[in-house]
Nucleic acid binder design. Structure first.
Lengths: 333, 333
DNA sequence: GACATTGTTTACTGGTAGAGAATGGTGCGA
DNA sequence: TCGCACCATTCTCTACCAGTAAACAATGTC
């Protein structure tokens, strides 16, 4: 038996003083009302309502019970109501984890505007280049690079692709020569971003041919901004996401090399716990991210679907494959 | 879905921080836990718990919801607990309706002892000779005479049979003569108890022959005690329940007549709303009544079953007929 | 006094809650 | 580093139960 229904039936019957009326009000047939009350009484072992076919009245026990039940039901109803506004308007605290550099170069500036758009929203932004466990640490959303992406039940939304560029200061190239082939890098002073998945081996491609160079260098650092500073100082050469050095390249402070070779890309993802029942506060922040990262793109953002890891489903795994909404694994809408 | 179950599942999961552990605690399988949480979230349109297979944490909404839900569930649990003691020990207020005379002559004296046996019990005893609507007026129990008994869904428990006796004061018989046959009463000054079902026609039986006498008299009164007073004063003759005049007959203040004729009997019933889930306070009072009315009987009380009104049931009305426990109509265990 | 309303009972049925098996994911310990 | 054990989820199946409809009994009213 559904006890919550039974309690609501009891309450209505008690307040309306009629089985039939309660039935009409609740959209239930008279027998259903009878049975609910009878089962409730059976469960409690107490008669709650004295009734003839024409008259009914609560027993003393019924009155006592009603009092407490009413409190309980009201509290539960309030629980539902409290979630109402939260369900529609962004509010509460949004906990976000994001890598330092990309935030400072691409995001940070737009956040005040975002926050003033949603006055009820608080943002708790943790800048951290390590891969946080978003469930354990209670984050609503995290921004990850592709070399940092776990294969989990989380949802990953692609934000941007950051092509890398090989560059150094003009002064460095003058002194040590400009590399003509990837192999030339073996002799160069390569500055390494230690948190990158491809920190020690740089890969280049051309005409379907791939060159993997194990690089050498005296400086390894866990922030791309520090790498940039070292580049600007003419200390060495590095493979770095293009956006981080875009203004430097334009201004001539840095120069690129091996432009005819394809380099790695770092894809940025927004990672969050679930697609279903996405909280508005997460929804709007996600929209904000998508907008920010597609702002100065030549062509609008085109979503890509990341292939799901092979499913060894028992039955015929046909249609479910395409319903990305209910897939728990990584995918991009 | 049973929402109360879902809420309890949610609460356990939140407090134990584990789906599996909650399942073990509640005696449910892991899939059941998952489904309950998922359905609850679906119902609310809000994600309550972020979860991977190894880790789970409440969302902000989940924490807010849990708070209210806990309150609600606690209130409902309290409602059940409150009924616990009531269910076992007699307590609260017992509202009883009883006829004036029988109470004063047979019951009244024993009530203080009854009440001191149950210290938590209050008794609200309404002495009223009319037939009250016990459901409408909120009585827990009523004592009724057989000529007052409705054919309702109430339960009637036989308490005692009160044979009537035709009697008057010796002085009356001296002055007006002692009736030898029922027909002699036509000339007598008959005192009538107006609330009796047989106030105007007195019936006598002998050898299977029945005599119905339409009686005449100058005094009609709605209390048997007043009838007795008039008898004592030698004002007339009356047909009155034997117990009311027992001491008068013994002491010689009144004398009986037509002793070889059978007279009406008034059967006393205790009437109460239902046999199922009989409240202890009613149970003990019923026991008290049975004990009081069988106190000075020569042979112990033998329950009689009153025939149920004919049932035009569709199917073969076979066994249900004997299960008196579930019969709603009048019956005596 | 016939009728209408109300609560209850009975028999039936559609929906659903829970179990079991299989899968994918994760952390711990050897 | 690699199993191993555990965990949440999905899918499928089944048994049960809640609700309905129809019939009935009781009761008050026009």
């Amino acid at each position: 038996m559904d006890r919550l229904t039974a309690l609501q039936v009891f309450r209505h019957v008690a307040e309306l003083n009629s089985f039939a009326e309660a039935g009409r009000r609740l959209g239930l047939s008279p027998p259903a009302i009878s049975k609910n009350i009878a089962e409730l009484e059976g469960h409690l072992g107490v008669r709650l309502i004295n009734r003839t076919t024409r008259r009914m009245a609560l027993t003393e026990e019924g009155r006592i019970y009603l009092e407490h039940v009413t409190q309980g039901l009201d509290a539960l109803a309030r629980a539902d109501q409290v979630l109402g506004p939260i369900k529609t308007a962004p509010s509460g605290t949004l906990r976000v984890s994001a890598p330092m550099t990309v935030t400072l170069t691409r995001l940070s500036a737009g956040i005040p505007a975002f926050l003033s758009r949603y006055p009820d929203l608080k943002l708790d932004l943790h800048l951290d280049d390590r891969r946080v466990d978003i469930v354990r640490e209670g984050f609503d959303l995290a921004i990850r690079g592709s070399d940092n992406l776990e294969d989990s039940s989380l949802v990953a939304r692609k934000l941007a692709v950051m092509p890398h560029v090989l560059c150094a200061a003009p002064s460095y190239f003058e002194k040590h020569g400009r590399p003509k082939t990837p192999a030339d890098l073996k002799a160069a002073n390569c500055i390494r971003f230690s948190l990158s998945g491809h920190a020690d081996i740089w890969e280049f491609r051309k005409d379907g041919r791939s060159e993997r160079i194990a690089i050498e260098g005296r400086y390894s650092v866990s922030s791309s901004l520090a790498v940039r500073d070292a580049l600007r100082a003419g200390f060495g050469v590095s493979l770095i996401p293009h956006p981080y050095v875009e203004s430097d390249l334009k201004a001539g402070r840095l120069q690129s090399a091996l432009d005819d070779w394809e380099k790695v890309e770092t894809t940025l993802y927004a990672v969050y716990p679930a697609r279903q029942h996405l909280a508005p506060k997460i929804r709007v922040f996600l929209d904000f991210l998508i907008e920010e990262f597609s702002r100065d793109k030549e062509k609008p953002f085109v979503p890509l679907r990341r292939e799901r890891s092979a499913r060894r489903s028992v039955g015929e795994g046909t249609e479910a494959e395409n319903q990305t909404e209910i897939l728990p694994s990584i995918s991009s809408p």
